[in-house]
Design a protein around this nucleic acid. Structure first.
Lengths: 144, 144
DNA sequence: TCTAAATAGATTGCATACAATTTATCTATC
DNA sequence: GATAGATAAATTGTATGCAATCTATTTAGA
């Protein structure tokens, strides 16, 4: 058996598995609110930068229009966002409605609730955060 | 704006994004071979433990039958695996065919090719690996 | 032994992801 | 001003993930 092919010798696998496990933890808080994890991170961006182009949203979240177009359509149908026009008619501007803005207060406790469920101390969390971002940024650079 | 809701203050996000980025890197090697990332990790388990129950495969990979059933069906159609019966008639035993076994040699170089693309030193990679697994194991414990 | 509860795997339904393609629009260049 | 190439977003097609449900089989307890 080729040693380097053992599952336990792959760095990719814990990254893949932990990402799914963390998403599932979020879902235990988000599903009762009727939103998904991807929708959650879309809202986080919109709370920071309301009135953003779909392209910019995709850049922040590393998602393309194939994912965002149907997702935004659903959010629009549910009354959370509106997709307005831009001067450049190719672009669409995503804006939170009042209902969408109200979600910020509803979602505010979630990061604390999640943090209380993760048994990592501050150093460990920071290290995991930093290394993940370093790897992410490298891979995204290569990707361009 | 609620500080704790800023995207940059979320640990979940780099985990989510880096997992997708790493998967995409693998796909650049796997797609030419006609296999997906999830199929790849299924093969890794089968190389270690040929003739495994679907349940056990799912336990190793944190995947359920909703994902594995159609995936194994495709691998069977492509001639990589066979699904045999067990004494317990509820169970199915997954076995590599000759074509499936031959894939081990084909896949063997990939971990080296991937490693050469990741600009992490050994310590960093080990830390990322360890912290990811620690978090994963915690979350999976809670999940049960 | 008979049957209720548990278990394995398949199926269904929904929501991503993302490559590739399409459509509409813009921009640079002549 | 006409047009080729670039760009933004939508659409298409394929493959996950996973909760919930269904079916077949096994097991445990009265």
């Amino acid at each position: 058996m080729q040693e380097q092919l053992r599952l336990q010798n792959q760095l990719c696998f814990p990254l893949y598995a932990v990402s799914k496990a963390v998403t599932r933890l979020y879902l235990s808080y988000l599903t009762p609110l009727g939103i998904t994890y991807t929708q959650y991170v879309v809202f986080l961006v919109l709370f920071e930068q309301d009135g953003i182009r779909v392209k910019e949203l995709g850049k922040r979240l590393f998602l393309d229009s194939g994912t965002l177009s149907p997702l935004l359509e659903k959010l629009e149908k549910q009354g959370y966002v509106e997709k307005g026009k831009s001067l450049d008619k190719r672009e669409r501007i995503v804006t939170l409605t009042a209902k969408g803005k109200a979600l910020e207060a509803t979602l505010a406790p979630i990061p604390f609730q999640i943090a209380s469920r993760l048994q990592l101390n501050e150093d460990e969390a920071k290290t995991l955060y930093t290394l993940s971002y370093r790897l992410l940024n490298q891979l995204e650079e290569d990707h361009e």
